[in-house]
Design a protein around this nucleic acid. Structure first.
Length: 348
DNA sequence: CACCCGTGGAC
DNA sequence: TGTCCAAGGGT
């Protein structure tokens, strides 16, 4: 027996009326659509990032830059610093570019058509569809990891990703309603984050269990089917805490690549061997003050932190007041290294 | 298509 | 402690 496609959206939307999450960027079901700027900002922040992590950043950004015009007018460095700690920093670079494109090319208003949204920096297939549906009430097929998992279970699609995406998109399209596509998409997210979770789905409470092929087959946890992961290599590097007159030397990372565009502590390239003091910014009386491991998406970095003082500030870089190091906008790796340098300073 | 790109919480 | 993974996009 096939899934009764016509039943899915009504059942899901009814469940959403009762069980929807209340979130700062979201309208309650049936309410007027929220400000497209806020929808866009939240969707970009939520890319591969948890709701819990996003909340404080969303509040800070919308307080400081309430409109897309305000954000477009902000200096790059301020936006990058405000994003520090949230990760995937290409999103922040694209956020700036997108805000300026909306102001310069669209008169400060986000386009309402999915295809036009898709052409903006940082907006891929998912985000463009989500904004079109949530902010503009368009019928758009919104497919993220939650939707993929739910749809694979509903239709028992066992073909591994990414090859299975074609079938998943078609199946999602077949259950997406003409009206309330925004609520439908958000309902799928809420269902995926609660009942239809990756592990131990709560099928007994699920409004779609009667329609679900995986549930009827007794194997909901079979999905999603994923390829095996490869082990993360370990790289090694040194990070340098160089201070002079109550300031510490910071630099800015190259615009692309790891932590691109972010303020940072000096560090050489990261490789398989411990570089020691090879890439130190200056010859000095360096002392080892601590070590750590930071795990990135596709490698881990074992790093050592070295500290030194010098008399002059005669070296290229940005001499940042140590007392304000928390405001430097350092990504987590360097924020932790700075904490090590700071602690060593107090015991020196 | 395969690979690159962060982070912190849950288990 | 290790593993998985969260509202993906760019190249």
């Amino acid at each position: 027996m096939l899934v009764d496609r016509a039943n899915v959206a009504p059942k899901l939307l009814h469940w959403y009326d009762r069980h929807h999450r209340t979130l700062p960027w979201r309208a309650a079901p049936g309410e007027a659509a929220p400000d497209p700027y806020r929808v866009w900002l939240s969707e970009v922040m939520l890319q591969q990032t948890t709701v819990a992590a996003v909340k404080s950043y969303f509040a800070a950004f919308t307080t400081r830059w309430p409109t897309v015009e305000a954000l477009a007018a902000a200096p790059d460095a301020e936006v990058m610093s405000a994003w520090a700690g949230l990760g995937y920093y290409a999103r922040a670079r694209n956020l700036i570019a997108c805000a300026r494109a909306v102001v310069d090319e669209h008169g400060g208003r986000f386009p309402s058509e999915e295809a036009e949204l898709r052409a903006l920096p940082g907006l891929g297939a998912y985000t463009a569809a989500a904004i079109a549906a949530i902010a503009f009430g368009q019928r758009a097929v919104v497919v993220d990891a939650n939707v993929e998992r739910i749809v694979e279970r509903l239709f028992a699609i066992a073909e591994p990703l990414p090859k299975g995406r074609t079938a998943i998109y078609a199946a999602t399209a077949s259950i997406t309603p003409d009206d309330h596509a925004g609520d439908f998409a958000q309902a799928m997210m809420d269902l995926g984050s609660s009942l239809c979770a990756p592990r131990k789905p709560a099928c007994a409470l699920c409004p779609l269990s009667e329609e679900c092929a995986a549930f009827r087959a007794g194997e909901p946890e079979r999905y999603p089917v994923k390829a095996a992961k490869t082990a993360k290599p370990v790289r090694r590097g040194s990070i340098f805490w160089l201070e002079a007159a109550d300031r510490v030397l910071l630099c800015r990372r190259p615009p692309k690549g790891m932590l691109g565009g972010m303020r940072a502590l000096p560090t050489g390239p990261w490789g398989t061997e411990d570089p020691g003091l090879t890439d130190a910014p200056i010859a000095a009386d360096w002392r080892f003050v601590g070590a750590g491991r930071h795990v990135f998406t596709h490698f881990a970095l074992d790093h050592k932190v070295y500290a030194a003082r010098m008399e002059s500030q005669d070296i290229d870089g940005e001499w940042w007041p140590i007392a304000a190091i928390e405001q430097a906008g350092l990504p987590s790796l360097f924020a932790r290294a700075a904490a090590i340098g700071l602690a060593a300073r107090e015991t020196a």
